[in-house]
Computed example of a mutant assay.
Amino acid sequence: MYRELITFEVAGQIFALDIMAIREIRAWTPVTPMPRVPSYVAGVVNLRGTVLPVIDLAARLGWTPTEATPRHAIIVCQVNGQSQGLIVDSVSDIVALDTDNLQPPPTAGQEDVAPFLEGLSAIEERMVMVLDLQALSASEDRAIAA
Rank of each mutant, 00 (worst) to 15 (best):
Y2I: 12
R3P: 08
R3F: 12
L5G: 03
L5F: 14
F8M: 12
V10Q: 01
L17E: 00
L17Q: 00
D18R: 06
I19Q: 12
R26W: 05
R26N: 09
R26Q: 06
W28Q: 03
T32C: 02
M34G: 02
M34P: 04
P35M: 03
R36Y: 08
R36D: 06
V37R: 05
V37H: 01
P38S: 08
L47K: 05
R48D: 08
T50C: 07
V51G: 03
L52C: 10
P53M: 06
V54P: 02
A58P: 02
L61D: 05
P65H: 10
E67V: 15
R71W: 14
A73Y: 03
I75D: 01
V76L: 09
V79E: 08
V79D: 06
Q82S: 07
I87Q: 00
I87G: 01
V88R: 00
V88G: 00
D89I: 08
S90Q: 11
V91L: 07
S92Q: 14
D93C: 14
L97G: 07
T99N: 10
L102P: 06
P105A: 03
G109A: 06
G119L: 11
L120K: 05
S121C: 14
A122P: 08
E124K: 14
V128R: 01
M129I: 11
V130S: 06
D132G: 09
D132P: 10
L133N: 06
S137Y: 08
A138H: 10
D141Q: 09
R142V: 14
A145H: 13
